[in-house]
């Protein structure tokens, strides 16, 4: 392909071809092989310390130098999270308990809110004002479907 011809053809696109390497594939080697000394003993940054409970993947022997220490596990969801971290990132026993913990954690969140005298405003938290403004019909459909399903389930339970 003629370089100059092509450049001419694409003048309407600012920067066309500026990062092209006419000889090379791939454009960028994703590993800088020269920088890889194949060892795990780089000069580590200072170690962060904490008095909080911080989970650690069992695929590493110690904490990294820096870590996030927000939201230590609590309650039932916390037990599940601790359990999950006994298993590697390769195991369903790691991920499924974590997903379950997330769902339980939501309920725990509502209970904590109510206990502190705060009733979460679900309409507001779900940003339904935006829906109401821009796609009212879809919102009404959504709410109607949820209501219909809930009533249906409730009637089924009552019939038993």
């Amino acid at each position: 392909m003629e370089k100059e011809n092509l450049k001419e053809q694409f003048t309407h696109i600012p920067g066309w071809g500026v990062d092209a390497d006419w000889e090379n594939d791939p454009v960028y080697p994703m590993r800088d092989i020269a920088a890889d000394d194949k060892s795990a003993d780089w000069k580590r940054p200072a170690q962060q310390t904490t008095s909080k409970e911080v989970q650690r993947s069992n695929e590493r022997p110690e904490h990294p130098a820096v870590f996030g220490d927000t939201l230590p596990p609590t309650g039932l969801s916390g037990h599940l999270r601790r359990y999950a971290f006994h298993y590697s990132e390769s195991k369903y026993r790691h991920w499924l308990p974590l997903l379950l913990a997330d769902r339980i954690n939501e309920v725990e969140g509502v209970i904590a809110d109510v206990k502190s005298g705060f009733f979460p405003n679900i309409w507001k938290e779900r940003g339904y004002q935006a829906y109401w403004k821009y796609d009212r019909r879809k919102l009404i459909n959504k709410v109607a479907t949820v209501a219909a399903v809930s009533i249906g389930v409730w009637m089924l339970i009552r019939r038993k």
């Binding site: 890889d36 580590r44 911080v54 990294p64 996030g68």
Partner: peptide
Amino acid sequence: NFCKQGLFANCHESNAMA
């Protein structure tokens, strides 16, 4: 070792949990 290769998204000193 990963940052040195330009793989900053794959740093080994910043995530305890995975």
